[in-house]
């Protein structure tokens, strides 16, 4: 997707945020003992407060209650949804995702709050809102967006009885993963390991990363006045020349500052991960990872020597080792 396409797409999906997926759905059946019994048989929950009228009456509940976790059950669509699902706003939103290649769907997590016990005779109505859509995320499954819906459950008096948050990931399945699957049909179905976030390459920096791919750490040099500069820029701040070439770094330097990254941990990066501002012998600095040493061994002023090396399937980087 081009940046423009992404922008359009995101504008389209964001327009759904805050909207109800459809009219409130009133449960087809009121809370009733038969459905409660089926549920407890299936789940193996034998608490008598759900089924034994005499016991329940004497308990602190004062009568039969439905298992709280059945909350969502009472207003479910039922078998009809498998045959001819009703086109609600949520499905409409998913179709937009599908049309843009985000065909994967994964329920990631749900949480429920229960406000009061439901008893036979109660009527449950669900009101579902598309609450939020995350920014674009890179996950092990592929790039995608988390969609969170919030369902408010009310009773026959309009009072809230519970609330459920449901999160799904709509994602573009990793091309690599799909290809790997196709080419090794029958082999172990293992997703490709995640890689580091790639440096976006544009006019002013692509040449530097291409040199890294060739194993060389370059430093931009002004043709007008010879000043070295990093990160690369299109014009010299000293003499305003736009002419430049580059020299290859000796990869010798020292730690100017550093940090150990603990949290959050991003997929594709090896932790413990040490990151440093490295002062190169040539005079410029760059950010790079430290390797071959323990966090407690690192200090400001430590001499280091760099090595441009492959760190994962997609990424070549300069790493600096204790000299």
């Amino acid at each position: 997707m081009t940046p423009e396409e992404t922008r359009d797409f995101e504008a389209k999906i964001r327009a759904y945020v805050g909207r109800e997926v459809g009219a409130p759905t009133r449960g087809k059946d009121d809370v009733n003992p038969a459905m409660i019994r089926h549920w407890t048989e299936v789940t193996g929950d034998e608490s008598p407060v759900y089924c034994d009228q005499a016991f329940a009456a004497k308990s602190s509940k004062g009568g039969i209650i439905a298992p709280p976790t059945m909350l969502q059950i009472w207003s479910m669509e039922g078998y009809a949804m498998c045959q001819r699902p009703e086109m609600d706003l949520q499905r409409e939103l998913h179709k937009i995702f599908d049309a843009h290649g985000f065909v994967g769907v994964l329920g990631t997590n749900t949480s429920t709050d229960f406000y009061r016990d439901l008893r036979p005779g109660d009527q449950v109505t669900a009101h579902t809102v598309i609450d939020n859509i995350s920014e674009r995320k890179t996950t092990a499954r592929g790039v995608g967006y988390f969609i969170e819906t919030v369902t408010k459950f009310t009773d026959q008096h309009g009072a809230d009885v519970g609330r459920q948050v449901f999160r799904v990931l709509k994602f573009m399945p990793n091309a690599e993963t799909a290809e790997a699957k196709a080419s090794t049909a029958g082999a172990a179905d293992k997703p490709a390991p995640p890689t580091r976030i790639q440096a976006p390459r544009g006019h002013d920096n692509a040449w530097w990363w291409e040199a890294i791919d060739q194993g060389k750490l370059m430093i931009q040099r002004c043709k007008g006045c010879g000043t070295l500069r990093h990160p690369p820029r299109p014009m010299c701040g000293d003499c305003n020349s736009t002419e430049w070439d580059a020299i290859e770094s000796s990869l010798e330097g020292e730690v100017y500052s550093f940090t150990e990254l603990h949290y959050p941990k991003f997929p594709g990066y090896p932790y413990p991960l040490l990151c440093a501002v490295v002062q190169l012998r040539e005079g410029t600095r760059l950010i790079a990872n430290l390797a071959g040493c323990e966090p407690e061994q690192v200090f400001i002023g430590m001499k280091v020597r760099g090595k441009v090396e492959r760190v994962d399937d997609k990424t070549v980087l300069p790493n600096f080792y204790p000299a």
Partner: peptide
């Protein structure tokens, strides 16, 4: 492009 100098190294957050 600016963040290209930091992202591959895991230096991704304001805290870092």
């Amino acid at each position: 492009i600016h963040y290209s100098w930091y992202m591959p190294f895991g230096l991704l957050t304001p805290a870092s």
